[in-house]
Write a protein that binds this DNA or RNA. Structure first.
Length: 506
RNA sequence: GCCGCGUUGGUCAAUCGGUUUAAGACGCGUCCCUUUCACGGACGAAUGAGGGGUUCGAUUCCCCUACGCGGUACCA
């Protein structure tokens, strides 16, 4: 009885993929891998008016970046293709016709304009079992005129004929028993006038043809689930219907409602996985990738948004997620997205991942900022030194820029109020000592510094901050002597000298 | 409006009727460490929407109300 696990992610290629979409991918992927099943990517491009060039490629790129690659897709192919619904167009009509023959669907000749007018007249208008009695469809017209219209090629759609007052329920993996009364759901269009199926027909037909065993989708689909269940019942039999799981939504951090790309702009964090530029409007939306997130952290954070292992573990590798994941532990309620926590996840991953995983990207980031990363070995030491202070990959240039270029801005106010002739003298002497230092390492540099301080009768604490400002320009960064060691003799002395010149004479 | 799904601290959340003074994490506050900023450590503030039941006993089960969200397209 146990059939092979086959799950699918079925996005509509209309723009960038946002958090919620990627999380749906993730849960599909985790389940498939854990169960030794297949993860399929199917492109739901049945709405030709919403075609957006590049959106499909964006999906591939995003899945690749996240490391959530499908087993079958339009690109990869597979035994159940084509994987783009527009290319399966010809296969849908016969199912719709079959439903008409069974009496579960009907032709409707109302034009979109007519229906729009109706909705304007009656705000609560629904094309349901009641309304259909008064509209232009094959239920209200005689056989002959229907045939005439059809023969004449009159534009029409095929609608599902929802039964009256019937309870349709199913067992949701996350929510348990869910049921709806059919009188409350209207006669959804199954086949559009352009012969393309709507989502309702296409999911059912394709999930059947592709032998999908489990469907994980957003909670926004719950209200139309009875349509899908009925379609399964009539077309392929309830025994073959996939198991459903409706995922909770990801909500705005403030206010209310589903998280949308607009919230990102408004609140200053990414919502899409990667940067996306709408080719039609030119509108740019920022992505987590370009913002400086590691895919490991992004995936980890998403997994925990609505699911938890029931243990105290929060940092998970993909493999650990595959092993620990379970639908039973997915929350029912929606989760408000928390960017602060996302930053924390990224910070953890920056600190724990081997440098080799991301030093190339950090190097690129330096180049983008006009800094020359130079020797890779030195770069690694620098990254190692500052990574505790970086929540994002993009924080590195800010946190370590002074290693590659003398500070552009100098926090003079941090030193000048307490500046004195004695301190000035100290640094003049320090330069001579460093000039002659035989070993340019952090420890001996610190030792020389402190011995001189003692000899000058100044507390080292009074001198350390000025020294830091000289080298770094501000009150941040790793230990000063580590910095001096990596900066080298020439640069260190040069920076001491230039600050001394900026300070007021005393 | 109607239908559906939800509701534990500011946020993510554990608890699957009974050693719980209701975990843990993020964030926040205080302190320690650090003669910078972080990291780290210690401590702290902060939670079961309201009302009825069921039960010896409810955060846990049921009902009602409130609130939130979703849906209500020839979009997905």
């Amino acid at each position: 009885m146990s059939k092979r696990v086959r799950v699918r992610f079925a996005p509509s290629p209309t723009g960038g993929l946002h958090l919620g979409g990627v999380r749906t991918v993730l849960y599909n992927y985790l389940f498939a891998r854990q169960q030794g099943g297949d993860f399929i990517l199917r492109i739901e491009d049945t709405d030709q008016s919403r075609f957006v060039p590049g959106a499909e490629e964006y999906i591939y790129d995003t899945l690749r970046w996240c490391g959530l690659e499908p087993d079958e897709s339009p690109l990869l192919g597979g035994g159940f293709g084509p994987y783009r619904q527009s290319e399966r167009k010809s296969s849908y009509r016969r199912y719709a016709e079959e439903l008409v023959k069974m009496g579960h669907a009907y032709y409707a000749f109302d034009t979109p304009e007519e229906l729009e007018a109706k909705r304007k007249e009656f705000p609560n208008f629904q094309y349901n079992h009641d309304a259909r009695k008064h509209l232009r469809n094959s239920l209200t017209m005689d056989e002959l005129s229907i045939q005439e219209l059809l023969d004449a090629g009159t534009r029409h759609v095929i609608r599902i004929r929802m039964p009256e007052n019937q309870e349709v329920g199913f067992d949701d993996m996350i929510r348990g028993e869910v049921s709806f009364n059919t009188s409350q759901v209207d006669d959804k269009v199954l086949l559009k006038a352009d012969n393309m199926p709507t989502y309702h027909l296409a999911v059912v037909v394709d999930d059947h043809l592709m032998q999908i065993s489990h469907v994980f989708r957003g909670e926004e689909w719950l209200p139309s689930a009875p349509v899908h269940v009925l379609l399964w019942q009539w077309l392929f039999g309830l025994d073959h219907m996939p198991t459903w799981a409706h995922l909770p939504l990801i909500l705005k951090p403030d206010g209310h409602g589903k998280l949308s790309k607009r919230d990102g702009d408004r609140l200053g964090f990414p919502v899409f996985a990667m940067d996306w530029t709408d080719p039609n409007t030119g509108e740019k939306t920022k992505g987590f990738k370009e913002r400086g997130f590691l895919p490991e952290a992004f995936v980890n954070m998403l997994a925990l948004l609505g699911w938890n292992a029931g243990t105290e573990q929060e940092i998970f590798t993909l493999q650990e997620l595959i092993d620990a994941f379970s639908l039973e532990r997915v929350h029912k309620g929606g989760a408000k997205f928390n960017y602060e926590k996302a930053l924390w996840f990224n910070h953890e991953w920056i600190r724990n991942l081997p440098l080799s995983r991301y030093e190339g990207q950090v190097s690129d980031l330096f180049v983008q900022q006009g800094l020359n990363p130079g020797d890779p070995h030195r770069l690694s030491r620098i990254i190692e030194l500052v990574k505790d202070r970086c929540h994002l990959l993009t924080d590195f240039p800010q946190q370590a820029g002074f290693f590659f270029k003398a500070p552009a801005t100098i926090d003079l106010a941090a030193v000048s109020p307490k500046w004195s002739a004695a301190k000035n003298q100290f640094f003049v002497e320090l330069m001579s000592i460093y000039e002659l230092a035989t070993s340019w390492e952090a420890e001996p540099l610190e030792l020389g510094f402190k011995e001189l301080a003692a000899a000058s009768q100044i507390k080292p604490g009074e001198l350390l901050l000025p020294f830091r400002i000289m080298l770094v320009g501000g009150k941040f960064g790793p230990g000063v002597f580590d910095i001096a060691a990596l900066l080298g003799r020439v640069e260190t002395i040069s920076r001491i000298k230039s600050l001394l010149q900026l300070l007021p004479a005393v």
